[in-house]
Amino acid sequence: MQPAAAVAPLPATTSAPTAEVVLTVAHVSKSFGTNHVLQDFSLTLHRGENLVVLGRSGSGKSVLIKCIIGLLPIDAGTITVLGQDVATLGHAALDELRTKVGFLFQSNALYDSMTVRENLLFPLRRHWLAARRGQEEELVRQALADVGLPDTLDQMPAELSGGQRKRIALARTLILPPEIILYDEPTTGLDPITAREIDQLIRQVQQKYTTSALIISHDMNCVRLTATRVALLVEGRCYAEGTYEELRQRNDPTIHAFFE
């Protein structure tokens, strides 16, 4: 387990307007039949920041990040990741882009027929670089050390606890060093203590790898501990944006309802 003291405090500034934009969602709409999940939704993510998209269950948060990574097609608008329009990319270009974008699933989505080592080796072997040849074991050990579970190499996912599975899933995301990490409800289903450990881990990872993170959550503790900026998703639109403290102090009842 990682000590809390190792994590630096969150930056005081709300956003980083001068920092490079790594992800842009512009006027995106997505519907499933008559259910309009996203309507003209927009946001930008800057390099090095943790942006939390906050919203109620079923508000379309998970749909948003699945659209960002290209798992779901959008109906209208554009999504630009690291300068590339996701909708226009072919299979090969999309696969290449995805090696720079990590995705932590809510269900962890660990390959349950493989050991932890094989889970971590899988993305490495799919993107075999000459520079990494012979270093795979070291990279696996390093990723496991980063998430505080160095002794689970030969265990199966089913033998691990929920929090450990979450950490292994994060290690698998880190093994191809990502520039952006998308977290889909990283603390849902975890006990409060483990959830806080995962929050700390998210911040440690962001500081160590200087990644940008888009975090989908409705866990207010997670939002408070991880967010440098918060975007509120209400009825398919970006209802409000600001730091945790800024949003908490607003008198708007819709926003206030999340902070009660």
Binding site: I69, E96, T99, F105, L110, Y111, F122, P123, H127
Partner: peptide, 11 residues
């Protein structure tokens, strides 16, 4: 979601 996980890892 293991098929999705493969897809997002560029496989």
């Amino acid at each position: 979601e293991q098929i999705d996980a493969m897809e997002v890892s560029g496989t």
